[in-house]
Write a protein that binds this DNA or RNA. Structure first.
Length: 623
RNA sequence: GGUUGCGUAGCUCAAUUGGAUAGAGCAUCUGACUACGAAUCAGAAGGUUUAAGGUUCGACUCCUUACGUGACCA
């Protein structure tokens, strides 16, 4: 693999310029050319060379004419002139000498440059020739594993998991769009004391119930017994405390807890009965998870099970002891000293030889690397585990693992409710299946109210409601910067106006209608655009917006942020709606312009579809 | 107690990574469907970016302190 692993973390910096561009980066290309022209201008006018890195261009703000802006403040010292003077001189030179630049204006230290419409048209022509799915770059990691979802098998998925799943899926898609080969992995936490709790409760109170007999999804059934365990366990603790036992002791010595621990030991020892119950219940849970995954539209190429990796983790601990980077305490427990790394001493293996979380994570990391030899391994895990992930990396570094630095923790903020934190103990957890049902129902109600779907079959309607409901939910969860904690407001999440998924889906449906009608009217999208000389502002802005696609996806990949793509999709939809009200496509008298507007609409539709696809959101032809 | 994240309009979020008069949506108010879909568009109002200092041509962004709030480590 040609990519040095160490350079990939935490976010790789694209080297510029690159030799080969697989995608016509409309805006990037213009920017490059413009920068070269700017360099030449300064050279010609002032006789001084300015490093290209200093020529920072930014988009011109809406209230000024132009599309690109050069900030001239940084040059005042080296050029010995005032910021306005520099702007004037450079602008004047460019208009006279560069075909790119049609006009300029200077406001204080800002030189606003207007790109000639002919250039925009040329760029648009290039852009629309690009086949769908063309990688947006050749840089960055090429072989990536994205681990996400990673549920426990003792209860069903909830709202927090949804953020995780949508993020993981989307980041995988985004990285794939940069040309990387991406493996979506799901590490199932299928062993441990919490699993035993469900099993024990089932054994004691289940009376042979099955998902079929109870008419409950398997994951919900397991969750039911987990809750039942907690209920009876708490009762036992309360009783012990009433008998005068200290709270801490009561928690440890409640019969149910002791039995659960017995069961865990029996499981590790391979006890047939326990293992068979474990297999049966996990089987139910997996069926339930599969149904949820399918329903929310996420998938995986590879499953890992902690039951299959924790032993490998113990081997890593042994390896560390042999290499002398771990140490054993008198009681037999194994530790690593990470004080030099600014962390603490950390337990790796209990005195009784049983593994802790980090043990299995060491094993899983090893296995993943054996399987895929990745140059980037993304872990989509909530930020409450920041410390844990730092430790994992540090331990792998101590072990001298080549993949230690290829690990990237995509640390996302937890989801709050208007009522505060989600607490399973207080029953405030929002169930994923139920939430999805609610958003789909809300989408159905809204669609029926609009009454624009006559002619669709019942099946098409159901698909549409699902598409819209999930679109609303996914967009709502993905539009916020992953790193930030977010508030989930159930009422807002099913809204379909303003900054929402359905708004963008609506824009797509609108475009689809335009294209259908254009086809009926026999309007070609292939007119020779070179005969057009001037564009209406709305069309120019639309072209410019569409041209950002590749750099937006690169930015999203670099920062592991679907929010960047969500924001872009919204911007595109908004720009199109503005264009739509501004310009009457079918009454446009100039045939070439009319053809151009249809082609522009088509390209907008493709861009919306692609962007939303990166978020895992589908878009309808009608709604 | 230690480590660490966050604090922007009434609410939910942005701000091109140090650039212009801090932008969107929701909610509120006003206007636009007898030419392509009003789930839309145009406009109004809404801010001492928690506070105080510092760095510089320039700070929501970087540094220090305080306050508020969350997470993790025992």
């Amino acid at each position: 693999m040609a990519y040095p692993i160490v350079s990939l973390h935490p976010a790789w910096e694209p080297a510029r310029p690159v030799a080969f561009q697989p995608f016509a980066f409309l805006v990037q290309q213009l920017e490059q050319t413009l920068k070269a022209a700017l360099g030449a201008a300064i050279q010609q006018v002032f006789g001084t060379e300015v490093p290209a890195a200093q020529l920072a261009l930014q988009p011109t703000r809406k209230e000024f004419a132009g599309q690109f802006t050069l900030v001239t403040f940084p040059f005042t010292k080296t050029l010995g002139k005032g910021p306005e003077q520099i702007g004037q001189a450079v602008g004047e030179w460019l208009v006279a000498n560069s075909p790119l630049v049609a006009g300029y204006n200077v406001v204080k230290g800002f030189l606003n440059l207007e790109i000639a419409d002919a250039e925009w048209l040329k760029a648009f022509e290039q852009l629309r020739q690009q086949p769908a799915g063309t990688p947006v770059t050749t840089e960055g990691p090429r072989n990536v594993v994205v681990e996400y979802s990673s549920p426990n098998t003792n209860k069903p998925l909830h709202l927090g998991h949804l953020r995780n799943n949508f993020l993981g899926y989307s980041v995988a898609e985004i990285l794939q769009a940069t040309g990387a080969t991406v493996t979506k992995a799901n590490l199932v936490n299928d062993r441990g004391i919490h699993i035993c709790k469900s099993m024990l409760a089932y054994q004691q109170y289940g009376q042979g119930e099955t998902p079929q007999s109870a008419g409950i999804k398997g994951d919900h059934l397991a969750g039911k017994y987990y809750v039942l365990f907690e209920k009876h366990y708490r009762e036992q603790v309360r009783q012990l405390e009433a008998e005068g036992v200290l709270p801490d002791v009561a928690k440890r010595q409640a019969p149910l807890m002791l039995e659960a621990q017995d069961m865990l030991r029996a499981w590790e020892a391979g006890d047939e009965q326990v293992v068979s119950l474990w297999k049966q219940m996990n089987g139910w849970v997996y069926e339930g998870f599969d149904a949820t995954y399918q329903n929310i539209g996420v998938d995986f190429n590879k499953y890992y099970y902690e039951s299959g990796t924790y032993l490998l983790g113990k081997e890593r601990v042994e390896e560390g002891l042999q290499k002398g980077v771990f140490f054993r305490k008198e009681d037999g427990s194994v530790w690593v000293d990470l004080k030099e790394e600014g962390l603490d001493e950390k337990l790796l293996l209990r005195a009784d030889g049983t593994s802790v979380y980090i043990t299995q994570d060491l094993g899983t990391a090893e296995l993943k690397y054996q399987d895929f030899g990745y140059d980037l391994s993304v872990y989509v895990i909530a930020d409450e585990q920041n410390y844990h992930m730092q430790v994992l990396r540090a331990v792998l570094q101590k072990l001298g693992k080549p993949y230690a630095d290829a690990i990237y923790h995509l640390s996302y903020g937890m989801v709050d409710l208007p009522s505060g934190k989600m607490k399973s103990r207080e029953g405030t957890v929002v169930d994923a299946d139920e939430l999805v049902r609610e958003v789909v129902e809300a989408a159905q109600a809204a669609t029926l109210e609009k009454g624009k779907t006559e002619g669709l079959t019942e099946q098409e309607l159901q698909q549409l409601y699902h598409m819209l409901g999930l679109g609303a939910l996914k967009y709502y969860l993905l539009k916020v910067d992953p790193k930030k904690r977010m508030l989930f407001n159930p009422e807002e999440s099913v809204k379909l106006e303003g900054d929402t998924g359905p708004f963008i889906q609506y824009s797509h449906a609108r475009i689809a209608t335009i294209l259908r009608k254009a086809a009926e009217m026999g309007i070609s999208q292939e007119a020779d655009l070179s005969t057009l000389t001037e564009l209406p502002a709305a069309a120019r802005e639309m072209v410019q917006e569409l041209g950002r696609y590749a750099s937006v996806v690169q930015e999203a990949a670099r920062t592991f942020s679907p929010a960047v793509v969500a924001q872009y999709a919204y911007d595109v939809a908004r720009a199109y709606n503005r264009f739509y009200t501004d310009i009457k496509i079918f009454t446009e008298p100039n045939e070439t312009s009319r053809s151009f507007y249809v082609a522009l609409s088509a390209q907008t539709g493709r861009t919306i579809k692609a962007s939303m696809g990166l978020l895992g959101i589908q878009v309808p032809e009608r709604m």
